[in-house]
Design a protein around this nucleic acid. Structure first.
Length: 717
DNA sequence: ATCACCCGGGG
DNA sequence: GTGTACGGGTGAT
C-alpha cells in the first residue's frame, strides 16, 4: 500500500511524496491555506478585496481555550509567502490574527486527517489510524552519507573534498568536481528515501554545497532540484538552563535528510521519529530538528485545532520581565530535602514514574482549568496556593498528556520483551513528558501559564510530604528525597509502602531498587548534606552516580577515568564494612593518577576541559578560562557561536595574563606542557569528592599521596 | 567575602 | 522556533 513519505508546499500547491512499491513520486495538489481573523463580520467584503485573499468565509471557532465558539473570518490565501505582511496589516487595524504560523503543509494534513508515514489507499485517502500503536512502519531505503575534507585536523570550507561515502560506495582519488557529480548520480541511481548524516546540518551539507559552488559542479541530493542552500545561519538559544547552538537545517525535496545529531533522533532513532511524526503531524525533516518542547507544543496545537480552537499569532515576543512579586510566587519549586550525610547500607530507592505528567492528568492542570471562571467555589484546591480547578471539563493539557502516558506505557511493555525499537519509541516519548512540565512555566509557551507550573510543583511537594509521612508511619527512616524520589531504610517491605502510596496518591510509586551501600557526601564547605550528589552500588550490580565530576560534561577524560577507577574498586564491596576495606585500594588509584600528573606523563588530550560558552567574547565581564579560550580562538580566526563547545587545558594557572593561563585544544602541540600543580590540585579535589565521607579531604590526601611518592612540592618547579 | 560563570536530567 | 529555579562547584576580583 502507498505511504506518505513527505509533504511540501510550493507555488500555491501541496506536493505529496508517495512511496509505493519501492518508488517515490510527487503528487501536486492546488491548495489554498487559511488564516483566521477575529473581527466584526461586516468587514468580510472589505477584507476580500485584499490582493492575496481569495475567499472570506464566516466560521465558528474558539479563539481562546475554555471559551465558547464565536464567529470569525476564515481567509483563504492564494499564496503563503506574504502571510506575515498580511497578518501585520490586519492586526494594525486592531483585529486579531490566528493560525498565522501554521505552515500550509500542516494545515493540509490536519484538514485531511493525514500525517507523515500514514498508509493511504489508491485515491490517496487515509487508510490508517493516527492514534494506534499497532501500525507497521513502511520500509525505508536508508543510506548513510559522509564527507571527509583533505585536512582532518582543522576541517574548513576551503579544504577540497577528499572522500565521499554513500552507503557502501566510496568516491575518492578523482577531481573534486567529478566526485561531487558522482555523488549526485549515485544518489539518483540508488534512490534512497532517507539520507542519514552525522552532523550534516552543521558541516557535511553546507560544506558539500560550498565545494560544489567552488568546483563548478552540480549537486542534487533531493528527488527534485534542491533549493539553493538558503543562508542557513545557525541560531543560539537558551534551553534547559544553557545556551545551545543549533545549526540551520538542510532539507531535501522528496527525500529525507535526517541528521543523527539532533535530540529527537539521538533519543528515539528513526523509529521514534516516525512515531512522533505520526502523532504530531509534522513532516519528519522539520520534526527531527525540533526540541522536545516544541514537539510537545505541536501535539497540543494539533489537539487544540482538532477541537476547533484557533492558535493566536504571537510575534515580537519581547522579554517580559517578571515583577518581584511574581518571582516570589513562581520560584517555589518542588521539594528537595537535605540528604543525611553519611555512608549507609540496605537502602531502598523509590520513584514516582512521570510524576509531573501524572499530576497534570489526575489533577486536571491546564491553562484554562486552573483558576477557571466557572468553578470559583469548587472544594478542590491546589495545596499551598488555594487555586480552584475546573470541575466541569477536562483541560487541553490532560487530554494531550493522558494518551501520551498511555502510549509510552504500551511501548515500555513491548520493550520488555527486548524490542529495541519500542525501547527507542518509549524513550523519546519520555522526553516529551518531561518537557511538558517545564513548558508550563515558560513565559513564551503557547499553552503555558505560570499558575499551572506553580500548581504542579505544589502538588508534587504535597505528594512527596504525604509519601514521607506514610513511610515514617510504616516504620521507615528517610535519608534523602528529591522531587519525585525517596531513599528510605527500614525493616518493613518497601514494596508494600509503594503499593500503599500508589493507592493513596493515585500515582504509581515504583521501587527502583535496593543499594548494597550508598554515600551521601556533605557540601565541600560545610558539614550540611548536599542536595544533589550521591553514589551507591545497587543490588543489580550497577553503580548509580549523581552530581560529582564524573557526571559533568566539562570534566577532562583523565579525571573521569580517575573517579571511574576509584568507584570500580569500591564496587567490590557489598556492605559498609567491606566498603571501608576497599579504601586502601582506592587510595592506590589516587596515588597512581597523581603520580602520572606530577611526572608530566599524562596525555594533554585527556586533560582537556570542554565547556560551552554562554556569551561571545566581548560580553564576558570576567576574564576566566572560557574567555581566554575564546580569545585564543579569535586570534586564530575561528568564530565561536554561543553554545558551541570550547576546549582548553590549563598551562599556566597563575599567569598574570589571563589569556596565557590556558591553551585552547586546537593549539596543543607535542611541546605543550600542562600545569602540573594545577592538575595535581584538580586530581585531589576529584578524589575528595568520593573520599571525603571516609575522612579524606584534599589535604589529608595530599599527605597520603606525597608521602608514598617521596615527593616534595619543589618537584613541581 | 562577593560576584561571575559553568553544569545538572535518563538508560 | 526558544522550559525554570536552584544548588553545587570553581575562579576572578
Amino acid at each position: 500500500m502507498p505511504h506518505l513519505l513527505d509533504i511540501d508546499y510550493r507555488d500555491g500547491h501541496i506536493i505529496l511524496w508517495i512511496m509505493h512499491a519501492g518508488k517515490c513520486t510527487p503528487h501536486r495538489i492546488r491548495y489554498q491555506p487559511r488564516i483566521y481573523l477575529e473581527c466584526p463580520v461586516h468587514n468580510r467584503h472589505l477584507i476580500s478585496t485584499l490582493p492575496q485573499v481569495r475567499q472570506v468565509r464566516v466560521e465558528q471557532k474558539i479563539t481562546s481555550l475554555g471559551q465558547e465558539p464565536q464567529d470569525v473570518l476564515a481567509l483563504s490565501l492564494d499564496d503563503w509567502s506574504e502571510v506575515f505582511g498580511l497578518a501585520d496589516i490586519l492586526e494594525q487595524r486592531g483585529w486579531k490574527a490566528y493560525n498565522v504560523d501554521l505552515p500550509p503543509a500542516r494545515q493540509f494534513l490536519l484538514e485531511r486527517g493525514l500525517f507523515p508515514m500514514a498508509r493511504l489507499d489508491w485515491h490517496l485517502h487515509l487508510d490508517d489510524d493516527q492514534q494506534t500503536t499497532g501500525y507497521t512502519a513502511p520500509e525505508l531505503n536508508t543510506l548513510h552519507l559522509d564527507v571527509t575534507p583533505r585536512s582532518v585536523k582543522n576541517p574548513c570550507f576551503s579544504d577540497p573534498v577528499k572522500e565521499i561515502r554513500l552507503g557502501a560506495d566510496i568516491l575518492e582519488n578523482m577531481p573534486e568536481a567529478d566526485m561531487i557529480e558522482g555523488l549526485s548520480s549515485l544518489v539518483k541511481e540508488t534512490d534512497p528515501d532517507v539520507i542519514l548524516t552525522c552532523g550534516g546540518d552543521s558541516f557535511q551539507l553546507p560544506y558539500l554545497y560550498h565545494r560544489a559552488l567552488e568546483a563548478g559542479a552540480s549537486l542534487q541530493l533531493g528527488r527534485q532540484q534542491d533549493d539553493p542552500p538558503r543562508q542557513n545561519k545557525g541560531r543560539s538559544y537558551f534551553s534547559y538552563g544553557r545556551i545551545i547552538y543549533k545549526p540551520g537545517g538542510y532539507l531535501l525535496r522528496g527525500r529525507l535528510h535526517i541528521d543523527e545529531q539532533t535530540f529527537i533522533v539521538r533519543e528515539g532513532g528513526m523509529r521514534g521519529l516516525i512515531d512522533l511524526g505520526r502523532i504530531t503531524g509534522i513532516p519528519l525533516q522539520q520534526l527531527s530538528r525540533l526540541s522536545p518542547g516544541s514537539a510537545v507544543t505541536a501535539l497540543q496545537v494539533d489537539r487544540a485545532l482538532k477541537d476547533g480552537v484557533l492558535v493566536p499569532w504571537r510575534r515580537n515576543l519581547s522579554e517580559n520581565f517578571k515583577t518581584a512579586e511574581e518571582l516570589l510566587r513562581a520560584d517555589r519549586g518542588a521539594l528537595i530535602l537535605e540528604s543525611r550525610v553519611g555512608v549507609y547500607e540496605n537502602i531502598a530507592e523509590m520513584d514516582f514514574t512521570s510524576l509531573f505528567p501524572h499530576i497534570m492528568v489526575t489533577r486536571n492542570i491546564s491553562p484554562e482549568t486552573v483558576l477557571c471562571d466557572c468553578c470559583p467555589d469548587s472544594p478542590v484546591r491546589v495545596p499551598f496556593t488555594g487555586y480552584n480547578i475546573c470541575q466541569q471539563r477536562v483541560g487541553l493539557i490532560p487530554r494531550v498528556i493522558g494518551p501520551l502516558i498511555k502510549r509510552r506505557m504500551t511501548y515500555k511493555r513491548m520493550a520488555e520483551s527486548g524490542s529495541q525499537e519500542h525501547q527507542m519509541m518509549q524513550n523519546v516519548l519520555k522526553w516529551l513528558l518531561v518537557t511538558s512540565f517545564g513548558y508550563m512555566g515558560f513565559n513564551k509557551a503557547r499553552f503555558g501559564r505560570i499558575e499551572c507550573h506553580e500548581s504542579i510543583t505544589a502538588y508534587a511537594r504535597e505528594i512527596l510530604l504525604q509519601t514521607m509521612e506514610l513511610a515514617q508511619d510504616t516504620g521507615f527512616e528517610i535519608l534523602h528525597g528529591i522531587v519525585d524520589s525517596l531513599w528510605v531504610r527500614g525493616s518493613g517491605d518497601p514494596r508494600e509502602l509503594c503499593d500503599l502510596v500508589s493507592g493513596t496518591v493515585g500515582i504509581p510509586l515504583e521501587l527502583k531498587g535496593h543499594y548494597h551501600w550508598i554515600v551521601f557526601p556533605s557540601n565541600r564547605h560545610n558539614r550540611a548534606g548536599a542536595m544533589n550528589r550521591y553514589f551507591g552500588l545497587m543490588k543489580d550490580g550497577k553503580l548509580k552516580v549523581r552530581g560529582i565530576e564524573l557526571r559533568r560534561r566539562d570534566t577532562p577524560e583523565f579525571i573521569r577515568r580517575l573517579q571511574h577507577d576509584m568507584l570500580e574498586k569500591m564496587k567490590c564491596a557489598r556492605t559498609v564494612d567491606e566498603l571501608y576495606d576497599t579504601i586502601p585500594c582506592v587510595l592506590d588509584v589516587v596515588r597512581r593518577y597523581a603520580a602520572e600528573i606530577t611526572c608530566g606523563n599524562a596525555d594533554p588530550g585527556e586533560l582537556v576541559f570542554t565547556t560551552h560558552n554562554r556569551y561571545r567574547l566581548e560580553d564576558y565581564r570576567q576574564k576566566g578560562n572560557q574567555a581566554a579560550a575564546l580569545y585564543q580562538l579569535q586570534e586564530e580566526g575561528v568564530e565561536v557561536q554561543p553554545g558551541q563547545a570550547v576546549q582548553y587545558i590549563h598551562t599556566d594557572h597563575t599567569s598574570r595574563y589571563y589569556h596565557n593561563r590556558v591553551k585552547v585544544a586546537e593549539l596543543i602541540d607535542p611541546d605543550t606542557v600542562y600545569d602540573k600543580k594545577k592538575y595535581y590540585d584538580i586530581t585531589l579535589r576529584a578524589a575528595e569528592s568520593i573520599l571525603r565521607p571516609f575522612g579524606y579531604d584534599r589535604y589529608v590526601l595530599d599527605d597520603v599521596v606525597m608521602g608514598s611518592e617521596q615527593m616534595r612540592v619543589e618537584d613541581f618547579y
